[in-house]
Amino acid sequence: MTALERITVNSQQCGGRPCIRGMRIRVSDVLDLLGAGVEIDTILADYPDLEREDIYAALLWAARYVDHPRLSA
Score class of each variant (00 low, 15 high):
Cys14Phe: 14
Leu33Gly: 12
Ser72Tyr: 14
Leu50Ser: 00
Arg6Leu: 05
Leu34Tyr: 09
Glu5Trp: 07
Leu59Val: 02
Gly16Phe: 01
Leu44Cys: 04
Tyr65Gly: 02
Gln12Met: 06
Ser28Ala: 11
Pro69Phe: 10
Asp41Leu: 14
Leu33Cys: 08
Arg26Gln: 07
Arg64Ser: 12
Ala73Ile: 02
Leu4Gln: 01
Cys14Pro: 00
Arg21Leu: 12
Gly16Lys: 09
Asp67Glu: 13
Arg70Ala: 07
Leu33His: 07
Pro69Cys: 08
Arg17Gln: 15
Ile55His: 07
Asp32Ala: 08
Thr8Tyr: 06
Arg21Val: 02
Ala57Gly: 07
Leu71Ser: 09
Arg52Ile: 13
Met1Asn: 07
Ala63Glu: 15
Glu51Asp: 13
Arg52Asp: 01
Asp41Gln: 04
Glu53Lys: 01
Ser11Thr: 12
Glu5Pro: 04
Leu50Met: 12
Gly37Ile: 11
Gly22His: 09
Glu5Ile: 03
His68Arg: 10
Arg52Val: 02
Ala57Gln: 03
Ala58Thr: 07
Arg6Ser: 04
Leu44Asp: 11
Ser72Arg: 15
Ser11Ile: 06
Leu59Pro: 08
Glu39Asp: 11
Arg21Tyr: 01
Ala63Phe: 08
Leu34Thr: 00
Leu71Thr: 10
Leu34Ile: 05
Ile43Ser: 03
Gly35His: 01
Arg24Lys: 15
Asp29Arg: 15
Ala36Asn: 13
Ala3Trp: 04
Cys19Ile: 03
Thr42Pro: 11
Leu44Glu: 05
Ile7Lys: 10
Pro18Thr: 12
Leu59Thr: 00
Gln12Asn: 06
Met23Ile: 05
Tyr65Phe: 11
Leu44Tyr: 13
Thr2Cys: 02
Val9Gln: 00
Leu33Thr: 12
Arg6Trp: 05
Ala45Pro: 10
Leu71Lys: 05
Gly22Val: 00
Arg21Phe: 00
Leu33Pro: 01
Thr2Trp: 06
Glu51Thr: 02
Ala57Val: 04
Ser28Glu: 14
Leu60Trp: 08
Arg24Gln: 15
Val38Cys: 10
Leu31Glu: 15
Asp49Asn: 14
Leu71Pro: 05
Leu59Asp: 00
Leu33Met: 13
Ser28Lys: 15
Leu34Glu: 03
Gly16Ile: 06
